[in-house]
Design a protein around this nucleic acid. Structure first.
Length: 833
DNA sequence: CTACACCAGATTTTT
DNA sequence: TCTGGTGTAG
């Protein structure tokens, strides 16, 4: 594709939106200070109005940077500086991109629809790369590998090179290669200093891997950026096109950019230098995956004369919360230094409490959440939606899930495996990929024996050998094997059926497309369609249902049946997911279109409307805010994580500290930090020391709920005092001092705890409080009945106690669970599909 | 080729 | 403790 046609395509694409433009600029001329300026403080306003030249917006937590950013975009459009599609706006997450789009839409009466270049780095790069892929030796129909495929490929390479997989695990190689890609190094560009990586074979393996990807017409996540940077660096004409096209560039979360992203941005901005980067060095928490805080620090060097705007007025948190956060982050060196302030109230102090163990911590938080929800403590009742538990590592979530399940407190876990990363989704997608392109060998490898068809390693190897020696794809190879009698018997029959099925689905798909070639389809999509739900590409023909075809494929290949027959606890959920996948297909007009976008946009945007407590990692919480935030697990080794400190020393510690800062600044009104003295790690009890970050919390902003000497307090403080506390010996002296100084016995918190612990002494069995018998809610289950629980799996009802059921789970053991979380085992299998 | 049993390593964080 | 990978028996 020549540069010329590029421009044509761009002009063509731009045409529709020019129509909308005059009305916008009229509005701007008629009323210079359009409504969206209202409510901006001077700094924000400066950030919005300084349109030309480089701008660095240093925006502290909760200072309204998204507001400034979206207003700036609206302003660009309203003043006619750029059409919506001439603005490049980059975010890190799809969620952020969505939110920005919505907010701009609100400001501009829908003009954001034309913003075709608002998205994540990766999403935008895919779009660009589909256009120019031939410049790096790929067809524009290239597939994007998920980590699973990537790992399988690397394993093959390692096996071929005769490397001990024990000593040199594929994961490690993947990490190294990823790191190089983040630095924008092609195999040839990896510096000599790195040549010892992975037993001296790293670079060679990297080269081999890239070659293999090219053969497969595929690329991984890192390649999306790497390839684009390479293209920009080696094809001045292409770069120039885009430099001209993107009149204004905006970057969110700039502190999280890695070198490749930085180069990409710098190349694009080089011409006009109309680039506005928004970031907060104090919130840089992705150093471990290649983010360079240095990018934000060197901005002014790269773009001399850059306007630097600081947003320091915080609109989110109370004074005490800001004070606590500031105390922690102050311990970091090398900050650009911002001082957040608020006009609001001091509010409630940050609460600090120690517990005996994780179970008690979860119990305490659960009860506190319930009381907040009821509105005790003389405070207004708060919905569960307004509360969040933010943990360092996802395995910490479990104790909360267990506890909340037991007491019937609705919660929602954010994070975990992404939807499209789940096994069943990837399996299904592999079938779809093969229907679209028979050349997708990785997909074939994935599903030859899924569901089980009696085709083991030997059969697969035979197919691979045959394919290779005949220079054909694996499907052809399999066909040859069957016809040539190389694979016989049960497996041979199954393989023949599979190949026939694949042919059939392939044929059905391509006649559905009304004769349109893949090429035409791509061109259409690229120039007209942005992403997601969209216009029909083909007149009339398209809705003859790729959705139906997808269902047919999953049925005919036996995959649906496979999960229906499977009696494991996860099976119903997997069927459910497959149903969701098929439903998601409805939003696209072809399987191709779906596959091209899916790996990038299929995140779990789930039930936000239900009133539930949110449980998520600190990383996942960046950019969010909650009226009430719980920060459990503040113990040295867990938070700050030992691993970060071992691997990255002081830098690692500082990043952990920024994580703590991010955590605290998520809170609007209430923030509760807790730690335990013993914790179960890898099934072993470990005594814990309170996090060093706790010592950095300024005393005046903290209310200590744990009495001195009773580290491991909470409800059972009195009962616990007799027990030896392994951690108290080594507990940081400052913490001791703090606790001694705090007049805890007169604090509202302590009195509250006292009165509550009297109501429910620790000596009682922990379930006592929950054994409230509610006759009205008596469940419809009978003892001995087989039941299913979405987390614990299948089990048998042992006892019924009001709406609580004691269940002996096959896998999870005996648990007491609220009836509403339970379904009968029969109905669990009845998932319609 | 599957099914089961045993052992080792893992537990940050994710586009 | 849990998972995933390898090895062995049927």
């Amino acid at each position: 594709m020549s540069q010329y046609s590029d421009e044509d395509a761009f002009e063509a694409a731009a045409a529709p939106s020019t129509r909308a433009q005059p009305s916008l600029s009229q509005r701007a001329t008629a009323a210079p200070h359009v409504d969206y300026f209202a409510g901006l403080n001077p700094a924000q306003r400066q950030a919005v109005e300084t349109l030309d030249g480089p701008v660095l917006m240093l925006a502290g937590a909760g200072t309204g940077k998204t507001k400034a950013l979206t207003c700036r975009i609206a302003h660009l459009m309203a003043t006619g500086r750029a059409r919506p599609d001439e603005i490049l706006a980059v975010t890190f997450t799809n969620k952020a991109a969505r939110e920005m789009k919505n907010r701009i839409s609100g400001l501009t009466q829908g003009a954001s629809e034309g913003m075709r270049w608002l998205g994540t780095f990766h999403a935008i790069c895919v779009k660009l790369l589909r256009r120019h892929s031939e410049l790096v030796g790929l067809k524009s129909s290239f597939t994007i590998l998920d980590t699973d495929d990537q790992m399988r490929l690397l394993k093959q390479l390692l096996r071929a090179s005769d490397i001990d997989e024990k000593r040199w695990p594929p994961r490690m190689l993947a990490g190294i290669i990823d790191g190089w890609k983040n630095k924008a190094w092609t195999p040839a560009q990896v510096p000599v200093a790195e040549s010892s990586a992975f037993d001296d074979k790293g670079v060679d393996l990297y080269a081999a891997y890239q070659q293999r990807l090219k053969d497969l017409n595929a690329c991984d996540f890192g390649d999306l950026l790497l390839h684009m940077v390479t293209i920009f660096q080696t094809h001045a004409d292409v770069l120039a096109t885009y430099q001209r096209w993107f009149k204004y560039i905006l970057v969110d979360e700039y502190q999280d950019t890695n070198v490749a992203q930085y180069l990409w941005l710098r190349l694009l901005a080089q011409g006009h230098k109309n680039i506005c980067c928004v970031g907060d060095d104090d919130q840089s928490i992705y150093g471990w995956r290649g983010a360079e805080v240095g990018n934000i620090l060197r901005f002014e060097k790269d773009f001399p004369g850059a306007h630097v705007v600081r947003l320091e007025q915080n609109y989110r948190s109370t004074g005490h919360i800001l004070g606590a956060a500031a105390g922690v982050i102050d311990a970091n060196k090398d900050r650009l230094g911002k001082t957040l302030f608020t006009d609001g109230e001091d509010g409630e102090k940050v609460r600090l409490i120690g517990h005996w163990d994780g179970e008690e911590e979860a119990r305490w938080i659960g009860e506190d959440i319930e009381s907040m929800q009821r509105g005790t403590r003389g405070l207004d009742a708060m919905p569960l939606n307004s509360m969040a538990i933010l943990v360092r590592a996802s395995h910490q979530m479990r104790s909360f899930e267990d506890r909340f399940l037991t007491i019937g407190l609705p919660y929602r876990v954010i994070g975990g495996p992404r939807f499209y990363e789940r096994m069943e989704i990837r399996d299904a997608m592999a079938y779809f990929r093969l229907a679209v392109s028979q050349d997708d060998d990785l997909a074939f490898e994935r599903i030859v024996n899924t569901p089980k068809r009696g085709l083991g390693d030997k059969a697969v190897q035979t197919i691979q050998m045959t394919a290779r020696s005949n220079g054909v794809n694996l499907i052809e190879g399999a066909r040859l094997c069957v016809n040539g009698g190389l694979i016989k018997g049960r497996g041979g029959n199954a393989l023949r059926d599979l190949v026939q099925g694949l042919d059939r689905w392939h044929g059905q798909l391509h006649c559905r497309s009304n004769g349109a070639t893949r090429r035409e389809l791509l061109d259409d999509e690229d120039s007209v369609i942005d992403d997601g739900p969209t216009v029909e590409v083909f007149d009339g023909a398209s809705n003859v249902n790729h959705v139906e075809l997808a269902e047919v494929i999953l049925d005919e290949c036996g995959y649906t049946a496979h999960w229906k027959n499977e009696k494991t606890p996860e099976a119903p959920g997997r069927l459910e997911n497959l149903k969701e996948l098929v439903k998601a297909l409805e939003n696209f007009d072809s399987l191709q279109g779906f596959l091209e976008h899916i790996s990038l946009i299929m995140d779990n945007a789930k039930d936000e409307e239900d009133d539930k407590v949110t449980i998520m990692t600190l990383h996942g919480a960046k950019g969010l805010e909650f009226p009430s935030v719980y920060l459990p697990g503040w113990e040295d080794g867990l938070f700050p994580s030992q691993r970060s400190m071992d691997e990255s020393g002081l830098k690692g510690l500082e990043e952990e500290r920024r994580l703590a800062y991010v955590g605290i600044t998520r809170a609007e009104k209430h923030c509760t930090i807790s730690f335990t003295s013993s914790r179960l790690v890898y099934g072993q009890w470990q005594s814990q020391m309170p996090s060093r970050f706790i010592d950095e919390l300024p005393e005046e902003n903290v209310e200590v709920l744990t009495p001195p000497g009773l580290h491991g307090g909470g409800f059972g403080a009195a009962g616990m005092s007799a027990q030896a506390n392994p951690a108290s010996e080594g507990m940081a002296s400052t913490l001791h001092e703090k606790m001694a100084k705090a007049d805890v016995y007169n604090s509202p918190g302590w009195r509250r705890l006292q009165s509550r612990s009297q109501q429910r002494p620790m000596t009682q069995p922990k379930e006592s409080r929950n054994a409230v018998i509610d006759l009205k809610a008596t469940s419809s289950f009978t003892t001995g009945e087989r039941v299913f629980h979405h987390k614990f799996g299948y089990g048998e009802v042992m006892e019924i106690e009001g709406d609580k059921l004691l269940i002996e789970f096959d896998k999870a053991g005996e648990k007491k669970v609220v009836a509403k979380f339970i379904v009968s085992a029969d109905s669990a299998n009845d998932v319609p599909f």
